[in-house]
């Protein structure tokens, strides 16, 4: 359940940014989560629901944008979409690839309200 720690980090950062900007509550949060980041979407939704209770985020609409996975072949350099860490290169069948996209875990933007 590392999603709970992740959710609490989101709450902490968003609270901090909102206070810094002089806001009083948060109406929207947009997150970017790569599908290979190790975050289980359902677990994060559940953890966030709990973590925002009683905070200035509690009314916020939380949008999660999924970032697809892209791997790069270590041999021929082909880049291809993948949903896991071990798909072989579709061009040269080399099994050794590096994930170059899909591990993101970011707070992209927030909308805040002022009193």
């Amino acid at each position: 359940m590392h999603e709970l720690s992740v959710a609490m980090s989101i709450v902490e950062s968003v609270e901090e940014e909102t206070h810094r900007a002089g806001g009083s509550s948060v109406s929207e949060i947009v997150l970017e989560i790569g599908i290979l980041s190790g975050i289980i979407r359902e677990a994060l939704d559940f953890a966030l629901e709990e973590a925002i209770k009683g905070t200035i985020l509690q009314e916020a609409d939380i949008r999660i944008e999924e970032i697809p996975g892209i791997a790069k072949c270590s041999s021929c350099g082909t880049e291809f979409r993948t949903g896991d860490h071990f798909t072989i290169c579709p061009e040269c069948m080399n099994p050794y690839t590096d994930i170059i996209q899909g591990k993101e875990m970011k707070i992209k933007s927030i909308k805040i309200a002022f009193k």
Binding site: S9, K106, K111, F114
Partner: peptide, 17 residues
């Protein structure tokens, strides 16, 4: 009277850690 603002954060969720 209320108004809002959008802040682009582009911040890693685990930035503190």
């Amino acid at each position: 009277h209320h108004h809002g603002a959008e802040i682009q954060l582009e911040q890693d969720i685990l930035q503190k850690n």
